[in-house]
Design a protein around this nucleic acid. Structure first.
Lengths: 190, 190, 190, 190
DNA sequence: GATGAATGAGTCTTCATTCAT
DNA sequence: AATGAATGAAGACTCATTCAT
């Protein structure tokens, strides 16, 4: 018995995400993922219960990494505006470094399979981020609206605009994202 | 010769959209669509070349309907702010009346199949909407940024927030969308 | 009600033969034949009971034409050798003028569908040809063997050699068929 | 890892040949072959790339076996006449032992699929046979014609006559094949 | 742990045929 | 007579998954 080779699990993760970008949910399959990952299809069943379980775990993994990245460098005592901009910048950096995560996340989060999954672990992860916006509301710096809504007004535009750029290389060429962040801020500020 | 039954094409359209909401791109199939539409699977191939062609045509149809709806009631001489709010309201009404279009559009637009499709007809359709934002820029009422970006700041948040509401019934309960529109406006106004 | 358009039947015949040459029995279909013939698939069912019936009728038509051609110019009182050479020459001319018939005939005659069909009309048609060989046997000019066998020794080699030439253009380049006829003759002569 | 069961490949080969005899190229299908071979249809795709690949491999296998059989017992220093008769006898024995190969070969070799395939391996296999005829030409025992043509005059008649016998049991009843061989010889001898 | 073999169920698509006009 | 519409059955092939090694 060999010890579990974590390189294989990673290879499966990566292959899944990359393939999903290329061919989409409609055309992906375990055997294609296996081939792309350089393992046997049966090997996938050592690491995951089944196809659904695999997708969920890949999704959770990416979400966790993203949540982690967005929180980076946040200080509880920093002014809200600074924190919000930091979050936006973190998000942009993260998806800049992992372009493939973008489309994967979009495709996943809209699939009923993933939508039905409410992971407490994930919610927990994003709580510190929400706290920033809650703080802003309490301090009357931000509009009196649910924190999730306020955060959405930062998260969604950035994601979508970045996606647009990925899809058609020449759209929003030379766009200054600091201006985008400011739009987000204008949207939510009181 | 039997005339083509247009009800069938419509049934296929509807079945496709509804099914995609329920089971997603990963699990949908021509035979399931056929069953849901009450036609034989082979009938689908009378109306469409193949699966891909079908999805594209369904997508175009929905996009066209949406574009049409968003343009409704726009007056060229109306003040920009009024027009922008009108567009937002039109969009919300449209997706409120066709909840199933929402997830369908999201899933489609992120699938590589659709992403590769650049339809001139669609672009044309959205041009009058972009014109509103361009006018705003020219009048210095809106930020000096690409019209598509400004419009995205209205379109994306509304779509995403509405989607969030659809997914989990209780999120943003009792949300006043007029406030959302104002956020959009604040984001883009100069 | 229009009168039956015999041009259509001919078009179907021709399309069937040509297509069979191109794609073979394994890949041919009624709808492909219809498209090639420029008619609707349903039209084929006006002229023929079904697929099988159609193939049989096409086969019979070709066989009849071939039998007709092989008999041309035969004189009952001509010397056997002359007649045999005439038959060989007729056969070669016929398949030279209708290259497509060659592969069609070969493919058909080996298919169980056609093999099971014993058409009296066809047998009748080839009787005058067999008579030539029978006469040769009686006159002790030819070997004492069944006429069908003797004729086969003329028919098969010519067909096969011609087929070989069709398949690979360069095989037996510049072959003098008169020499082939002589081989046939040597084989059967007493 | 389970080792590949070579019995299965053989079963597929046999089933293909037998079925082709019974129902022909027009009606054969992978699933029917699978059923006849006692394996799942999907199993066939483990051993072959696709339907075409399968037929080609079955054809090559049969051709190889036939070439092998025809060469048996040939001595380079034997007189040409003896060798030619030996080849004819070998061929007859082979197709006598494998009646099903006959129709299979005929149907295959006339299908465009196989016709397009020129296998060097096969050509190689038949070279020693051609050498016999070339030797005969050089020794002026045989007619001055391409060896392939001379061999064809032995191969084709035997195959076709035997086929005729298979098709209708009573044709050429009690035929002495030694006489057929002599006809072949008479055809080609100088 | 890892994998090729194996398969029943499912994929998309085409088929032969009938129907309504 | 002629044909596009319509479809159940079947086509080739792939899938997710399990098994044996």
């Amino acid at each position: 018995m060999r010890p579990r080779d974590d390189g294989k699990k990673e290879a499966i993760f990566t292959a899944t995400i990359d393939l999903l970008n290329e061919i989409g949910f409609a055309n992906i399959s375990i055997s294609k993922i296996a081939k792309a990952a350089g393992v046997s299809a049966s090997t996938i069943y050592i690491y995951f219960e089944n196809k659904e379980d695999m997708f969920k775990k890949v999704y959770l993994d990416v979400k966790k990494k993203m949540g982690e990245a967005m929180k980076e460098g946040l200080a509880a005592d920093a002014p809200v505006k600074k924190s919000v901009f930091k979050i936006c910048r973190n998000l942009l950096n993260f998806i800049g470094q992992h372009e493939n995560y973008l489309l994967f996340l979009e495709q996943s989060s809209n699939s009923p399979l993933i939508a039905a999954m409410h992971d407490e672990e994930i919610s927990q992860l994003f709580r510190p981020l929400l706290a920033v916006f809650e703080k802003g509301v309490k301090e009357k710096i931000l509009k009196r609206l649910p924190a999730a809504l306020l955060m959405g007004f930062c998260y969604f535009p950035i994601m979508q605009i970045r996606k647009e750029q990925c899809k058609s290389q020449n759209s929003f060429e030379g766009l200054d994202y600091e201006k985008v962040f400011e739009m987000c801020w204008d949207a939510i500020k009181a």
